[in-house]
């Protein structure tokens, strides 16, 4: 049992250190719409299939490219990629012209630079909800599981939540999982899952104490 705990702690420690190293050395892998990127906009003036355009964009710019429709009429597209050179732009416009019979000219298509969205700008929105809910949950847990020890419950809950989120961010950094659309959902899910896990552990420990009391 003790060995198992040591092994788990060691694995978690290794993941955490590797994640920190990766985040410091290489940073996070942001989705193109969340990083310093470049964008071109094409007005086709005819309906297009976004999946077809996406395929063409991936052929030209590589996998990390975002294709979105502009306005509601599905006749203009915005293509965002980390780097759009004039050659790539020309190649893309040519392929789009071939596909849709349009007569767009690359020289009329301007490359816009989009500044990055700082991770801290995204994460700062989580501070207030996490602080309030964790405080209320701690009060509940301390009152409900006071027999397990005030300090133990307080520390264990805070540590569990902090470690779980740190492990998540480490895994994101190590696996180069794109930071963007899914990140907040993953953070919220991890928070919720950890709360359920830690509470069921406390409940189990409390039942054991109660059973022990009954035996005595």
């Amino acid at each position: 049992m003790k060995n198992k705990k040591v092994i788990i702690a060691a694995i978690l420690g290794i993941i955490l250190i590797a994640g920190i190293v990766m985040a410091v050395v290489k940073g996070f892998n942001f989705e193109s719409i969340y990083t310093n990127a470049q964008e071109i906009e094409l007005r086709l003036n005819k309906e297009f299939n976004i999946n077809d355009v996406q395929k063409i964009a991936q052929e030209v710019f590589g996998k990390d490219v975002s294709v979105r429709a502009v306005e509601l009429y599905n006749d203009a597209i915005s293509v965002t990629s980390k780097q759009i050179s004039d050659e790539k732009k020309e190649e893309f416009v040519t392929k789009i012209n071939e596909k849709y019979g349009s007569e767009l000219k690359a020289e009329n298509t301007e490359i816009h630079t989009i500044p990055n969205l700082h991770l801290k700008d995204l994460l700062k929105n989580l501070i207030l909800p996490f602080v309030i809910s964790t405080s209320l949950i701690l009060i509940y847990q301390i009152l409900k599981y006071f027999r397990l020890g005030f300090g133990k419950v307080l520390l264990k809950t805070i540590l569990a939540l902090a470690i779980a989120e740190a492990e998540l961010m480490s895994l994101i950094a190590i696996t180069r999982f794109p930071v963007g659309t899914t990140t907040i959902a993953l953070i919220l899910f991890t928070y919720m899952f950890t709360l359920i896990g830690i509470t069921s552990k406390y409940e189990q420990e409390l039942q054991e104490i109660k059973a022990q009391d009954e035996e005595d």
């Binding site: 809910s133 949950i137 509940y140 919720m192 709360l195 359920i196 509470t199 069921s200 409940e203």
Partner: peptide, 8 residues
């Protein structure tokens, strides 16, 4: 078990 999540 889910009360903390309900609070959240």
């Amino acid at each position: 078990i889910t009360l903390p999540v309900i609070i959240m």
